[in-house]
Design a binder for these strands. Structure first.
Ligand SMILES: [Zn+2]
Ligand SMILES: [Zn+2]
Ligand SMILES: [Zn+2]
Ligand SMILES: [Zn+2]
Lengths: 151, 151
DNA sequence: TTAAAAATTGTTATATTATAACATTAAAGT
DNA sequence: ACTTTAATGTTATAATATAACAATTTTTAA
């Protein structure tokens, strides 16, 4: 699905951007949170919470569900990670500094997901909700299907 | 949130439309499935599976989780009901014969949800996925926020 | 009209996803 | 140093959903 040439680059740039964002905002990017983010970034296949848990267990942590869910909560709040509600899984944010009309393409064959942005989309959605005098707080837009490489 | 004057009308029209659709398609609209659909239509607040289960228990059925989830599966497959992934709840479809760019507005105050359609939205989404050579199978679009009556 | 096949429902058990509540430890502010 | 706050550890449980197999009902068709 992805235009990812060298995934080590994906990981390292995500980790260092996360580091900067936390520093800038006075947030504590602890070892645990770092490790969870790194585990999520292991691939472009969204990670399940309990899979993260198993992997954490292999790494010095006495991990239990709250260990993972708290780290996830932090990463979600800071925008470093997104939850994909349609598959109950978590994916690293590919551009955590700006979110404009973002949505997700999720391939049901290779299981990879891609975060996309489309201003037209935002416009159309805004138009639609104005019609309904609705004040949006959170938009969930996820498209399940087949990616170009899996047809 | 809703332009629902007389909710008995909502219920009865949904039930009779469901009846027709099942007949037309040779599907069995059993008493159990009917009752689950009616329970979902009790209000415009999306129903939780286990709440449906509790209500079923009060009505002659020896209901257990699979009882409800099977009925839900049937109703979802026939398009009579939608699942809202962002809140794990089920809502009756307000126009099960045609789905074009449908999405959901979910009010976090009154908890009601409204199914909306926007062709512009479909267009924008299609445009976006073409860019990514993605073949969509299922679109999840849910907007959490405050409805006009809850500001 | 009855026997076979298919669909539906019943039932028990368990898988998966997530949070509550309270104790302990580490970090930050004074 | 002491206090406060934040983060993590730990135990238990809540909330959501499915697997597997048995019993029953409905449909199909011999
Ligand atoms: Zn990559
Ligand atoms: Zn993002
Ligand atoms: Zn109504
Ligand atoms: Zn619908």
């Amino acid at each position: 699905m992805l235009d990812c040439q060298d995934h080590e680059v994906c990981i390292e740039s995500a980790m260092s951007e996360a580091e900067s964002i936390c520093q800038e905002n006075g947030l504590r990017f602890t070892e645990l949170r770092k490790e969870v983010l790194r585990l999520i970034w292991l691939s472009h296949v969204p990670a399940k919470a309990y899979d993260i848990l198993e992997k954490l267990k292999g790494k010095a942590w006495s991990a239990k569900p709250p260990t993972v869910y708290r780290a996830l909560d932090f990463l979600l709040e800071t925008g470093l990670v997104h939850k994909l509600d349609s598959i109950n899984a978590y994916i690293g944010c590919s551009h955590p500094r700006e979110h404009n009309g973002c949505y997700f393409l999720i391939c049901t064959d290779c299981n990879e997901a891609k975060e996309c942005c489309s201003p037209e989309l935002t416009d159309a959605i805004e138009l639609a909700w104005n019609k309904n005098s609705f004040r949006p707080q959170k938009v969930t837009l996820e498209v399940l299907g087949q990616c170009g490489e899996c047809e």
